[in-house]
């Protein structure tokens, strides 16, 4: 096993270009489990924790650009007001020790359908910035997840950052687990309300081979809100519409039975979470006026 520790981003990209099979490590919360439990023996590991720019965030043309190495703990502490949905999701990631170390970049790199950061990134239409020695490119979160633990990255690329607009309206995140802390999602849902665009974004996790954006449910609820002028009237939508919304979210899922839960339960729970999170978000929206 070879351990590489680049000091700069360009050095890291050069190393990845020279050894495309090399595995990057940041917080280690995924890779180290695989190494410790003898599931994986990468030939080369590139440590990204010494690269300063990965740990930085700032505004970039109206969007927040957040380095791939920013930890969950910092997202909660430093970005909780601007990215409440992602911060809520971050609060459910593992334990304080994990949140101190784990990064959204790492979550994206592993691309597990259960990654807690993914539903909020989908709901807020975040963009993933990938880099190689050949340059950078941007991939919409919705396009980024390619299959179970597969993403759109090329072998020579590293994740530089993700870009997301600061919240303009209420956001929610909700995750079902069979323990009251430190649990991998049985299923999860993120919802982002954007009054300016009159848009409702929904991402679901642990309910299919990839994290999924519930596009039909988004369209449906937006139509309901338009049709009944709810954005302007600041009232709740009809329970029947909410019920249908929940069913559409559930229908977007492609869950399986596994040790964490059954497919039927996941669909059921997603419908419940959809109704509840929308209510909470809409309550906040109504109160904000």
């Amino acid at each position: 096993m070879e351990f590489l520790q680049p000091a700069t981003w360009s050095e890291a990209l050069a190393m990845k270009a020279a050894k495309p099979e090399a595995v990057p490590i940041a917080g280690g919360t995924d890779l180290m489990v695989e190494i410790n439990l003898d599931h994986r023996r990468p030939a080369t590991i590139i440590d990204l924790t010494h690269i300063k720019e990965l740990t930085e965030w700032g505004m970039d043309d109206g969007r927040l650009r957040i380095g791939a190495g920013v930890t969950y703990a910092r997202i909660i502490d430093e970005l909780g007001d601007r990215l409440p949905g992602l911060a809520m999701a971050s609060r459910t990631v593992g334990s304080p020790q994990i949140r101190n170390r784990g990064t959204v970049g790492g979550n994206l790199g592993t691309a597990s359908p259960a990654g807690d950061a993914h539903p909020p990134l989908l709901a807020t239409e975040a963009i993933v910035e990938l880099a190689s020695t050949k340059g950078t490119r941007q991939v919409a979160a919705n396009e980024f997840f390619a299959g179970p633990k597969k993403n759109a990255m090329r072998a020579d690329e590293l994740i530089a950052a993700f870009l997301v607009e600061p919240a303009r309206g209420p956001q929610q995140f909700s995750k079902v687990g069979t323990r009251n802390a430190m649990v991998i999602a049985v299923c999860s849902l993120a919802l982002a309300v954007d009054p300016k665009r009159k848009h409702v974004g929904i991402g679901i996790g642990s309910a299919g081979p990839t994290p999924i954006r519930a596009a039909e449910a988004e369209t449906f609820i937006q139509e309901v809100l338009e049709e009944h002028r709810l954005w302007e009237r600041h009232v709740h939508c009809e329970p029947s519409a909410l019920k249908q919304f929940g069913e559409l979210v559930a229908a977007a899922a492609k869950p399986i039975d596994d040790v964490r839960g059954t497919a039927d339960y996941r669909r059921h729970a997603l419908a419940v979470l959809a109704r509840r999170t929308f209510r909470w978000a809409w309550d906040d929206y109504r109160k904000s006026k």
Binding site: S174, K175, V176, N180, A181, V183, R276
Partner: peptide, 15 residues
């Protein structure tokens, strides 16, 4: 939230 079923995973506000 820590007192609710589901805990900080924010699954219910009492519903």
């Amino acid at each position: 939230l820590t007192a609710m079923p589901g805990g900080v995973s924010n699954t219910t506000h009492g519903e």
